[in-house]
Design a binder for these strands. Structure first.
Lengths: 342, 342
DNA sequence: TTTTTTATCTAAACCGATTTAATGTTTAAA
DNA sequence: TTTAAACATTAAATCGGTTTAGATAAAAAA
């Protein structure tokens, strides 16, 4: 079992002080007037003994870990997995590593993870929060801790936010459906909740309808609890049918709901798009292959991750710095789930 | 900006030594004969000052980080994302955290990540390797480092392996196709490579054919480079067509290939399953929704992650311990991509 | 020759925890 | 009264780095 080689071992082997070794290995030989001969010798010895720095020791002394925390609802969900990957890539380029965690849409888990991140000395945190407000977060992290919110946020957040223009996204989707002749359009969202993504998506939907002078019907705005998606979708469809108020199109406010719709509509022997059209917020690979393929509002996942990292780095380097929110735009990808009924 | 509270601060505030505070906070008050009064007082002060341990300091002193590395080809790929999630969950239950990284099927990246994990003081590593052999790994980690291989491995590996019975998996798939009357069956794998998953899957395919006295044809075993999947699948199909040797069924050795097949077959105006049947190794959600839905060999992802963690924990607690490989079984999930041509 | 400079290098403190080896007090036993 | 045992607590070392504030010796200037 090869014992770990420390800087003291190198110093011993080279017959110099720990200080000198540390300086050399950090490329500070020149500026500290260390002779080129000594520098070379130390470097060679370090290589020969296969020296590997202990990042805990360095982190402890420097008060910096070169790692950031990434807390998402579920890293195995396609959307968040892509986001995680994006953050990982850009972080590695900047010599940072990422500690990823799933909160499972559970507030207590999220708070515990935030706690853990600080104990693990994360220099900053990127968070897609499931909380209703940021009070508890500020209690745990303090106001100046480098934290960036992605995807979800609260009004007037103290922390910077990286998000997509949700309102515009559903507006585009609704406009699109209306342009295809649809008037009876439903939107299905996760709720009841304070999730900004969901409320903004409803707003966009309403805005579009109002612009086109279509009456907003309460029973077409459906809130679905995140832990019982499929059953509730079926219930809605059943209700519409029995009251003869079936919409001609559904906007699913995220990919889970869209998948639920796919399942439920099939189970109800309804045909997409002939009997009902579908547009999903979030574009996942599946929608390209599904039967039928599903029209979707795509989010620029890679850009979101990069913007979030960019933001967190700036905050780490200057915690006082005020950083404005970043709002990225979405793209409508038409496929075969929308029928032209004009 | 609230300064960090250290154990020294608590000691000062409580009028006791750091030693005592440390003992109390680690629940060792009783065994060290600390009076209940003192214990209570220290705990209260710790709560009031909102003390949070610095895990770097603890890790440095204890030589243990309570974190493990998880290196996968790509955490945004559905299969690996699920695996990552599984490892994360079981790790958290055991008070471990996971540092996840993607190697991008790149050998140098993988080696660098292994290096990084040791510097970050990971207590153990779970690895789905993209390397051809384990020599370099042993150079970096040493023989006794707690490392567990998942998904992929090499023959006679020094390190324990958690995997699925790949041979049996493709054998089941091939048997199934044969039972539906297919004789001209192709298998498409990622290659050329030493990836155990791929070679074993070919073996299972061959074994089944031989059992049924069907001749194994060289041009039905297709190796596809991982960076140019779709084009190569199309080329194969084109070649078969022009030589009039089109198979009636394809076994895709992983989900990427299956998706490629879906794309290419559609582009070639072929119909699944009428003109060609398809079975995929790896079951992903998409196959349930695709058109047609795709029959697949499902791997027990959750179990793989749990077994890997179980194994790594044992190794961490006793690096000398010999642990046998774990081989989990797959399940064939029939859907609509296979035609009965008997 | 004495004083400065310059060029090299280092001792020791520090980061925040854990742990070892004592230390000082009481109380109980001899 | 002396000795031993039980009790409660702590000083100091340690983990492996970085950094501050000198130290030493040789060369240059006075």
């Amino acid at each position: 079992m090869p014992k770990k080689v420390s800087i003291a071992d190198l110093a011993m082997a080279a017959g110099v002080s720990k200080t000198l070794v540390s300086m050399v290995l950090n490329g500070k030989a020149r500026e500290n007037g260390i002779s080129p001969d000594t520098e070379k010798r130390v470097i060679e010895i370090a290589q020969k003994l296969e020296y590997r720095p202990n990042l805990f020791a360095r982190g402890l002394r420097m008060g910096k870990s070169n790692s950031i925390g990434l807390i998402l609802p579920d890293i195995s969900n396609t959307f968040y997995a892509g986001l995680a990957r994006s953050v990982e890539d850009i972080a590695r380029k900047h010599n940072y590593s990422v500690i990823m965690c799933s909160s499972d849409e559970n507030k207590e888990t999220e708070l515990k993870l935030l706690q853990l991140m600080t104990e693990k000395q994360a220099d900053g945190i990127i968070l897609a929060s499931t909380l209703d407000d940021e009070k508890q977060i500020r209690d745990i992290l303090g106001d100046d801790f480098p934290l960036v919110l992605v995807d979800r946020h609260w009004d007037n957040s103290h922390y910077p936010v990286i998000k997509v223009d949700n309102l515009d996204g559903t507006k585009k989707a609704t406009d699109y459906l209306i342009s295809k002749g649809h008037q009876k359009i439903s939107i299905m969202t996760i709720g009841p909740s304070h999730l900004s993504t969901q409320t903004e998506r409803i707003e966009g939907y309403i805005k579009s309808l109002e612009t086109h002078n279509i009456k907003v019907l309460r029973n077409y705005i459906v809130e679905i609890p995140h832990n019982d998606i499929n059953r509730c979708i079926c219930t809605s469809i059943y209700t519409w049918r029995s009251t003869n108020t079936m919409p001609t199109a559904i906007i699913a406010a995220n990919n889970f709901i869209a998948l639920g719709c796919l399942d439920c509509i099939i189970n109800n022997k309804l045909s997409i798009p002939d009997e009902i059209s579908l547009v999903s917020f979030d574009d996942i690979e599946l929608f390209h292959y599904s039967n039928p393929s599903v029209s979707a509002i795509a989010q620029p996942i890679k850009k979101i991750g990069e913007a979030a990292f960019d933001c967190i780095i700036k905050k780490i380097n200057n915690p006082q710095l005020h950083i404005g929110d970043v709002i990225l735009s979405t793209e409508l990808i038409p496929r075969n789930s929308v029928k032209n009924i004009k």
